[in-house]
Design a binder for these strands. Structure first.
Lengths: 205, 205
DNA sequence: TTTCGGATAGTCGGATCCTACTATTAGAAA
DNA sequence: TTTCTAATAGTAGGATCCGACTATCCGAAA
């Protein structure tokens, strides 16, 4: 399998928008920000202009018009090429089909949870649980306000459902782990230096 | 809250290793690769040397020895500074405490799942489910071989448990969505152009 | 009438990150 | 004895990414 030319998913969002209508980058930014409040894409104007340039370089989109309104900066309007249209679908297909390794910050932190000690870990996890809870509630009401009201088909907000699902799963794990720490089933071993390296002893208390 | 100087979690792994022993970068790479087969960190020699340089710049680690073995390239051995030791724990604490927005590839793809159409989406999701299943089985047996055998305390492999949990959650969602597509509860609306933009009609069939 | 904030449209410089590569040595294979 | 491979240790160049910034215009408030 040939390597993808572009990896940033912001390019996917750009392609997605241009399937609907030709647009200039600034308009893409505002449209995306409004549409994906939920945060499926990291929208950053700097990155956006670079991404658009990359898409042009690879021939997935092309400029169809450049004009200016008064003495405002010039606007360049882009539209997808034929290649761009097929690559769009192909890319989605691949992203769905094969899971790629990801490295979320929390995973890294969990790897060193031991360094916090049981009390501080409990405290930190409790705070995280709180943040997650509010996020989940927000996403729930956002869904209720759109899909629930029938203003948007469910399929078009399915990524919000997925996000919600992952946060709920994370919250589950956090709560479960908290219970294990306080319940004593997840113990903090005592670590000691030796000549060759390290040893640990489980506190059987 | 002041912004973090370093964001790459590979730096966290480096700090973690140096808590145990002074080390040179190449040794860090091999140790990390061996220890985190599960993939909590993205280990890349290029990034590693840059990360180490950044840690030195910020005064979190310092070189304690430079020597060479025969005519091999020179090795620089690093150890954490006092700042580095406290920052290490502080960073973990923060990462656990406050969830930061992340943008996994799959989330982006799900946002455009509609573009695949029901058949291709079903196909792709089915394939993903297969990949996830094998990953999960691998992680399960890795855990059984270490924690299950009592060679490593559970706390030291807790991030594998967390990874496993998230994959299981993802698999759940994928299977659930597949069932909804085939069951007809997640329908593909018919999208049409209008003068002003787009309209959709739910297939009530 | 001036001024001030927000929307419009995009640029720029630097940090970061990764791929691909260099160069050497020890030991196995032939 | 030569050749090959894996391990050792790191470098270099370029792509990418992002935060901070520029510059203009419009409408409302003062």
């Amino acid at each position: 399998m040939a390597k993808r030319k572009i990896t940033n998913t912001l390019a996917l969002a750009v392609l997605g928008l241009l399937q609907e209508q030709p647009m200039h980058p600034y308009e893409m930014a505002t449209t995306l920000r409004e549409r994906y409040k939920g945060g499926s894409f990291k929208i950053n104007t700097g990155s956006l202009y670079d991404t658009v340039a990359a898409l042009v370089r690879h021939g997935w989109i092309e400029s169809v018009e450049t004009g200016r309104d008064g003495r405002r900066p010039e606007r360049t309007v882009y539209a997808p090429t034929a290649t761009g249209q097929t690559e769009f679908v192909g890319w989605i297909d691949e992203l769905v089909r094969v899971p790629v390794p990801e490295y979320p910050k929390f995973l890294a932190a969990v790897a060193y949870l031991g360094a916090l000690g049981p009390e501080r870990a409990t405290d930190a996890l409790t705070e995280r649980a709180g943040h997650l809870t509010t996020r989940i509630e927000e996403a729930e009401s956002a869904l209720a306000a759109t899909v629930g009201a029938g203003t948007v088909p469910r399929l078009f907000m399915i990524e919000v459902e997925y996000g919600l699902h992952t946060w709920r799963a994370e919250l589950d794990w956090v709560r479960h782990t908290l219970a294990e720490i306080t319940g004593g089933t997840l113990s903090w071993p005592r670590v000691e230096r030796t000549a060759t390296g390290w040893t640990w002893t489980e506190p059987t208390a």
